[in-house]
Design a protein around this nucleic acid. Structure first.
Lengths: 345, 345
DNA sequence: CTATAGGTTGGTAGCGATACCACAGAACGC
DNA sequence: GCGTTCTGTGGTATCGCTACCAACCTATAG
């Protein structure tokens, strides 16, 4: 019974089942177990069956912590988003998750809450966990974070905006171009007094780019840039409604409003329904991001379709390629956007 | 220069900066570095300063993989949800994330896509990563998964439904009670022919419980149970609209409809707006889950408020307490629900 | 002045896996 | 027929950190 695996010490104080345990019971060496599990073809049919049997019998789950330490590789991707709750990010996260899963990777998700210091702390923590890649939604980073990332050699993908100088790789659309295009679109439809409601600008390069795009388009349209037509509002239905009402009250001649973020536009639309303001008769409404919702409201809402899912998918694919050995080179993918003209304008 | 740290081998092939490196440059032992970082008060002021200086100088990030292997502890919580994309889960995930963060824990998130086999595979993978705790949204698990979880001794929280026999801990509301309460509410408002639209029932104990609650309430109300008034639909605006139209066409006498899931109710409401069906005049509409949206539509929609955030927060707190040493005992928390009566009924 | 306690520090031995090298035996060529 | 290649297997030495124990130093009491 004691067989050939005799001389080995067995003072395993009731701890977890290890590869050596499986090896002993299968009558093979630990190395063979390791190979049978991580690269089956490299092991003979006979050995593999013995190992598989022992693995099943004991319900053995290899310890990836140990594996990672030894191999200096992990199968965990880090992801930092401003808010998990927001459905925009959710679509991207889901896409990343799907690609990651298909490639045997796991996701560690962190929430920066739009705070740069938090982003820095979270990335540090993820690097301490030795993630094999990073996806950051933000592109405006703290100086220390930039230094940190410059020193690391894991792949990093930035999304959310197209930075002029990406840290490593970037997959996004241009917030500037998108906002400019929509504002231009409204102008070409004949609207003359176009309001602009933006998400908070602080620590958010995306919001700032959008505002820049709005003003650039006004200039191109030959329309006056009236700072009174620009409002900053936190994302939300009520906030969108508020912003619209205030704009209409202070600028009764306003004939269109572009809501550059979140569910602001929908909140405004509902407010119009409540007040009996015809959309687009009294005021036209345009939104940012093709929430499913906007296709179903009455009237349906003109918006910018941002391929959030593509962004997630391609980001993850870039990471996977790099992990598979693709050479390190800066990549900057513009996934573009599309204006979806609907009933509200 | 070579000092006392002389005899040590230094054939570090350009690998990562280790604790020993920091120790050498700070002129202390690796153990002191370890303590200075993980339990500062246990080290003298002088040593701590030396260590901190070296850490900052080299931008040293401790390797948590190694730390975890050595200490047999990780600071990663595993989380399996049916869909990351769905905003209901997002609210819960965010709450878990916040509590985890405040306690130095990280989140590894996986997506089961409502498939039990996938859930099983994902949990296995998370256990292989040696997560220190698990949150599962599903409560209907495969037999093999139950066995797997029975053998592990990490804390497990189930959410999404109140299982009769929790694996370990459970934090949820009763889908049965909630659906029964809303159906009863509609009955007491005087509606006689109450339709019911449910999410797919397969592999989803929550949907099945809701349907059970609906029928239980009808019985209590003394209303006939007409299977023709029940429709199964995947979640989505269009699907909700479709379901409503079909119900109205096949059962012209229907006077209320309870949409037990996702955005079905909103899709139906918009369809009514398009067709000019008065809500609740022609047909009353009730929903499940207090999406922000429902408070802003015209009319506002009667719904069930499920404290999704509380569920997340309390789940995470249970995990944290257990990790801090709370004794292992089955916990079953019913967070309840609330009927929010609004204009649509 | 010595004994004891308490608070810091350092050395050693793993944690559970994989990388790398060595080696045994089968298959092949000239 | 013997070197040569190839395939499959095992042994050994880490990977970077922490647990545990031993050693030391200072403080306090008797």
């Amino acid at each position: 019974m004691a067989g050939k695996a005799n001389g080995r010490k067995a003072r395993n104080g009731g701890g977890e089942i290890t590869m050596s345990d499986i090896a002993r019971h299968a009558g093979v060496s630990p190395m063979t177990v390791s190979r049978a599990l991580s690269d089956p073809p490299s092991v003979s049919e006979k050995m593999r069956r013995k190992v598989d049997a022992a693995v099943r019998q004991f319900g053995y789950l290899p310890n990836r912590i140990a594996g990672s330490l030894s191999s200096k590789r992990t199968n965990v991707v880090g992801l930092v988003v401003p808010s998990i709750r927001n459905s925009l990010y959710a679509a991207m996260v889901q896409a990343i998750s799907d690609v990651a899963r298909a490639n045997g990777l796991h996701l560690m998700i962190a929430n920066s809450g739009h705070r740069l210091e938090d982003e820095e702390a979270l990335v540090s923590a993820l690097l301490a966990q030795r993630v094999c890649g990073l996806v950051l939604h933000n592109t405006a980073h703290s100086r220390r974070l930039r230094e940190l990332l410059a020193r690391t050699d894991i792949p990093v993908v930035e999304t959310g905006n197209l930075p002029a100088k990406p840290i490593d790789m970037a997959v996004s659309y241009s917030n500037f171009d998108a906002a400019r295009a929509m504002t231009g679109h409204l102008g070409r439809l004949g609207y003359k007094r176009i309001g602009f409601v933006t998400l908070p600008l602080r620590d958010n390069d995306r919001s700032r780019e959008r505002r820049r795009g709005y003003f650039a388009a006004l200039k191109e349209l030959g329309l006056p840039a009236d700072p009174g037509l620009v409002m900053e509002a936190p994302g939300g239905f009520a906030e969108g409604a508020d912003a619209l009402v205030r704009l209409v009250q202070t600028h009764p001649d306003i004939d269109a409003c572009f809501f550059a973020g979140d569910v602001l536009a929908v909140g405004a639309l509902f407010e119009c329904q409540r007040r009996g303001w015809a959309v687009p008769g009294r005021i036209a409404i345009a939104s940012f991001d093709d929430l499913d919702l906007l296709r179903h409201t009455v009237p349906t809402v003109t918006t910018l379709r941002i391929p959030r899912q593509d962004i997630g998918r391609r980001s993850a694919e870039l990471l996977v390629n790099r992990l598979r050995g693709a050479s390190r080179q800066k990549v900057r993918i513009d996934v573009g956007f599309e204006i979806v003209q609907r009933e509200s304008t």
